[in-house]
Design a binder for these strands. Structure first.
Lengths: 235, 235
DNA sequence: CGCATTAATTGTAAAATAAACACTTAAATT
DNA sequence: AATTTAAGTGTTTATTTTACAATTAATGCG
């Protein structure tokens, strides 16, 4: 078999920035690294790409190892290729961000992989350039969420408007007028109001909504402006 | 030195989708591949990442080889990692798109590298998955240009409003009302009207403008809406 | 030299969208 | 029954976007 024999070959890794939302707080899934180098330090979930799998397959495999979940919302973000980003051996990392419903497996996670949900506001020091990856991921979901309805991926199938607003406010680090917010969100036609309420958050209770999946998939690429002033994305 | 000894290593390539605009037509810079496999077939400009350079450095090096230019607008786009995208040996390609002022070196290009400017509407069959890269690049610049003033990178330092409008219309494959277009563009405050005219395109001549570089760099991240209906980005 | 041609330039009114703003209501608790 | 707490809801104003066509500058031709 013909080969490009003179060329250097590189280690390829995939790193996943996994976001979750518990109805109150935006969180990242981090692990205590189980092997050297940087054993026991906080890290994103990552792993080496195998010879037989594509990048997307690698990302999905790694995410499944971490969370047990398949079919998670996963999007390639950026490839990090500074020559000395891994002190042991040069490794190029293809980063992905994932948005998952935190409730779907709050438990199995930490048991199997020493993983933990950490509030985005209190991310510890991370290994290598993972800090930089997290920063870019925050920026990326803000950017994308300003234009597309991706944040629903973070919510359970039934959710309330106050929860949704809370999520948007967390992602954009802004407070939004609730009258205008509900107008905008409902105007998308993406939400179906259910007849029962979530009584957990208040005495009165808040009506549950669910996504109109038809419209959700149809309009996913469309621009949907939920955020008042997109200039908040500037950073 | 410690190594991740058990892991597979991969060839890493960089491929550049280079856009140019001659005042009339949007074009891509393509080359006739000089080596096997697929010798003499049309291809994007690419090359293998070297052991001592970062991904960005590789992209800049390759772009310089092709165009002789440095300091070109270059942005990492996406990493392609299907296992058999290169039939010879598995290669992961990190793609970049570049926006250049076509006039800066219309000539030296084709001489040195068998490169040619090809109208975007008439791209020939390309090797490997380069077709897919081009499609993604078209989509990416459309997306980005709808929100940020990147298209100025395609224009010479002095340009006219009709040229600029033509560029936007080419990128978005749409026609825009010229009164509304000039209002929007001028409202950004990014343009400085010069006192002389370009007499090439019409009898009356069109005034030259240049970028206010201060504002350009300051507002680059800001959202600038020049495109009437961003839903045209849906595809 | 005036006339015809061609593309550049410019403004306004109507419609749509976004922003600002506060009271009422449902349900649980005391 | 009264109190507490958060959910739910509408209107007015301001801003932005859209639709739409006549005038002007310069050239070349008769």
């Amino acid at each position: 078999m013909l080969k490009y024999s003179k060329q250097t070959r590189f280690l390829l890794a995939v790193d996943c920035i996994v976001f979750g939302f518990d109805g109150e707080t935006l969180k990242l899934l981090l692990i205590k690294r189980a092997f050297n180098p940087e054993k026991d330090k906080w890290s994103l979930m990552g792993g080496f790409v195998q010879a037989t799998e594509s990048l997307d397959q690698a990302a999905n495999r790694i995410l499944k190892q971490l969370t047990g979940l398949e079919g998670v919302y996963l999007e390639q973000m950026y490839s990090f290729g500074e020559t000395s980003r891994d002190p042991i051996e040069r490794t190029v990392s293809v980063s992905y961000f994932a948005l998952i419903d935190i409730h779907k497996y709050e438990k199995q996670i930490s048991a199997d992989f020493h993983a933990e949900w950490v509030p985005l506001k209190r991310i510890p020091k991370l290994i290598f350039d993972h800090q930089e990856m997290v920063e870019l991921a925050k920026k990326s979901i803000r950017y994308k969420a300003a234009l597309h309805p991706i944040l629903f991926e973070l919510l359970p199938s039934r959710f309330t408007l106050p929860q949704l607003q809370n999520l948007y406010e967390s992602v954009f680090n802004a407070s939004i007028d609730k009258r205008n917010f509900s107008k905008r969100v409902l105007a998308t036609g993406l939400l179906i109001k259910l007849t029962d309420k979530d009584k957990a958050g208040s005495k009165r209770g808040a009506f549950y909504y669910q996504l109109n999946m038809q419209k959700y998939y149809a309009n996913f690429q469309a621009f949907i402006n939920i955020i008042p002033n997109p200039d908040s994305l500037q950073n």
